[in-house]
Design a protein around this nucleic acid. Structure first.
Lengths: 113, 113
DNA sequence: CGCTTCATATAGAGAGTCTACAGGAAGGGC
DNA sequence: GCCCTTCCTGTAGACTCTCTATATGAAGCG
């Protein structure tokens, strides 16, 4: 019981990637649009801050899961749009399956036995 | 696609704590016993390496969730036994509820929409 | 022309897990 | 007595990822 825990840590480490991939599954979006989409499909549970989002996008683009192109947002702002690559779509499948495995193992482990 | 991903990262960051707490919910165990219990209650899905386990135990003891005492293992080896403190038991409840919230939000987000 | 909003970006800190290694002590084989 | 394996705890260093905080620029509004 050292400190009252300053950081909230809303996101579980490792879940951001699959959420970004899922957000882009239907259509390409720009950065803040991805953030809003994630918040939407999780009913507000996950709120991705810019400082988490953009490094993740760069990392995933470098990994070959996303491709980007500059365009204009719905508010006439310069915005970078991201799309899933075929590799990224595969990655979405893989990470989704991995999540199912892990979460069912967790559910089993946390069952009151 | 830089590297073929050297590390496997079997465990999701942040899930080790609640697994340790759950492993100790029924009875006190020593370090490697906790590791084996976690592997058992997750049907082999989670395998906690010593290099992850012991720092976590020290951290959690310092946080006041666990108390420890030296004793003898079932194989006559010197072993440190850990028990849940009342604070730790509360922490187990909190983290379990948090896991339920997060995993259901993830399930909803990853639903094919 | 300042203010707000939108949009992208980086630096630095912090946390947590991993690999790899180390040491001590018990038990078995010979 | 001596090796060798197993059990048990532990640390060091690297690595990855998320967070807070801050910065920049451009559009729109009054």
């Amino acid at each position: 019981m050292k400190r009252p825990k300053p950081t909230a840590t809303a996101l579980l480490q490792g879940t951001l990637d699959v959420l970004i991939l899922k957000a882009l599954a239907l259509e390409g979006l720009h950065g803040l649009g991805i953030s809003r989409r994630i918040e939407q499909i999780s009913s507000g549970t996950f709120q991705v801050k810019p400082g988490s989002l953009f490094p993740a996008l760069h990392r995933m683009e470098e990994a070959g899961w996303l491709s980007s192109s500059w365009g204009e947002s719905e508010n006439n702002r310069r915005a970078k749009f991201y799309q899933l690559t075929p590799t990224g779509r595969r990655q979405l499948q893989d990470e989704t399956e991995q999540w199912v495995r892990i979460s069912s193992a967790m559910a089993q482990a946390l069952e009151t036995s």
